[in-house]
Design a protein around this nucleic acid. Structure first.
Lengths: 340, 340
DNA sequence: CTGAAAGCGCTTACAG
DNA sequence: CTGAAAGCGCTTACAG
């Protein structure tokens, strides 16, 4: 193993001079710098990460705490992860991926052993028991997902309330006056997914303001039950002209449901979903949808985390950054069919 | 930060005694051990990972080098990753997830800086330029995916040749004599996916041995083109009674293709796929298939890697472990329809 | 069974 | 502009 001592000897300088020549933290004569750099190239020197971490108290590692929930769409999870790892690398950090069931003890272990300079928590629930540990940790943390209590942490999430309003506004502007909203099943809420409520409540409020009739439902998260659910909802509201889906399984099942009923979108029914672009691609879904912005959320969380690690962010104030919803138009939105 | 010095002081012993009491590497009187353990609990001591790594030359970290290819099914990738992280944790290791485009320089960086004790490479191609670096590295490595040259590395993969034979044997035993095989598109081969050839060639050889007529094709990897491809293949071979799919997109498109043609499986056509269980679940696919065994491959790679890191595996010999193919029966295989 | 000391490979005040 | 030395927090021969 080649150390900075080898480099110093090869360059004919002291170890401290070699170190400073590489870090640039004090002025070095051009000749010495050149000799050191040549020695580095010649010997193929790379600093030992453990030694550097010990000396500087900086690991240049970010720990990513992931939670994998049963009926979650895996590509979406992967997009969060890639958003984090790619942005981290760009900022000079490596990523420790932690997938343990027991996120609390994992967080404690990594924090106490100082394996990472900061944490990104994925899939944060309304009440997330990892947060107490995180707040007590000496490293900063960024969350993807909005918990009930945001004090002391930076939070990044899609603006689900804005998403609910955008769905209703968009169809109202086109002339729709009766809509069906299909949310994820209630067990998703139970495990802490308050975002389902946030979207549904905001949509209901906006609909009430605008005089739009909105029928809210929970649908199953599995095939083929969700197909039957959708049929029942549409049967119950034959005059509804718009369908809002905050439920991935529903979006995947809808094409065959519409086919069976002899309906087409947007001619008979305008449809707006809320899922990731990957999801749309995997299933070749033709519905306009509000993107989950998974990679972007991961990126923003890391960007902010690193600025906190490196001390360029005010320690006193924390951030709640809700990404503005945007509809990816795939042509499933139009004016309602004219009555005749 | 609480160090082993704090623990030693609290317990009234020397630092070395505290260290040995915790590691158990030399005999310690019961009273001293108890005092040390109590001090640890009281102070909440966790060893500093960087310091330990520096002292022992062991990081207890495994680096996972992932490559993300365009038309790959993300849940399958995630299963490999989770297989690795979960098994690693079980064996006392954390996982550094490296997703850089430039796997060669990433591998070099992590290896030279000694951030990890070993490497798992995912998605290894026939000729993979990461392998030269890996062979020169001082840490051992395990591959998921079979390269042309396996010297010096441990390799884990599905037995694709066995898979091709198993597909043909299974249908031959039931009385089928004419089959269509749809492989992934040729661009998958170009980027190094020799497994496509391995399966196709072994299937062809076995078919020839058994006197089975096998029509091999490449199909598109995208909708809706693959649907048209499938229709064309079936049109071209109206007397074929079995369909073998080494192409995920084809499996996803097949239900609607069969529906359009008024065919049902296995009554009119026996079908065997080759994809992950997750893939089947995501698309609610009813076809019997050989599982990709992603998580299992990740687990085996880590298990073997750790035994190499810890020196319990003979350094002289390397392993090529091909998982025996197994058909998950989903009821799409039967005897061919009787002629009339 | 225990302690004092050296050493892992860095960085960074301290001195000149 | 450069060097000698201390220190980061561990582990582990060496000595008793």
């Amino acid at each position: 193993m080649v150390t900075i001592g080898d480099v110093a000897r090869e360059a004919g300088v002291s170890r401290s001079t070699a170190s400073y020549a590489l870090s640039g933290k004090r002025s070095i004569s051009p000749e010495v710098r050149e000799k050191v750099e040549q020695a580095v190239r010649q010997l193929g020197y790379t600093p030992n990460a453990g030694a550097r971490a010990l000396a500087t108290s900086q690991t240049k590692v970010i720990a990513l705490l992931a939670r994998f929930l049963d009926d979650e769409f895996a590509p979406a999870m992967l997009q969060y992860i890639l958003g984090v790892t790619n942005e981290a690398r760009e900022l000079g950090y490596d990523t420790l991926l932690v997938s343990e069931e027991d996120g609390v003890s994992a967080l404690k272990r990594i924090s106490d052993s100082r394996m990472a300079d900061g944490f990104v928590l994925l899939n944060v629930a309304e009440r997330d028991d990892r947060l107490d540990i995180l707040r007590a940790a000496s490293q900063p943390g960024a969350l993807v997902g909005l918990p009930a209590e945001t004090a002391g942490v930076d939070v990044f999430d899609l603006d689900f309330e804005g998403a609910g309003r955008l769905m209703v506004d968009t169809l109202h502007d086109l002339g729709h006056r009766e809509l069906v909203l299909v949310s994820q099943p209630e067990h998703v809420l139970e495990r802490g997914g308050a975002y389902v409520w946030r979207l549904a409540n905001a949509a209901a409020d906006r609909a009430a303001e605008l005089g739009v009739l909105l029928h809210p439902y929970f649908g199953s998260s599995t095939q083929p039950q969700i197909g039957r659910d959708l049929s029942a909802f549409l049967d119950a509201h034959p005059s509804a002209t718009g369908l809002l889906l905050n439920n991935e399984a529903a979006a995947a099942a809808l094409p065959s449901v519409l086919h069976e009923r002899g309906l087409s979108s947007p001619h008979d029914l305008s449809v707006i979903g809320r899922y990731s672009d990957d999801f749309a691609r995997t299933f070749s879904l033709p519905y306009s949808a509000i993107d989950s912005a998974a990679a972007e959320l991961g990126r923003r969380a890391v960007e902010h985390l690193v600025s906190r690690i490196e001390g360029s962010t005010d320690a006193g104030t924390t951030v709640v950054d809700l990404i503005a919803p945007r509809i990816d138009d795939r042509g499933s939105i139009a004016a309602p069919p004219t009555q005749h």
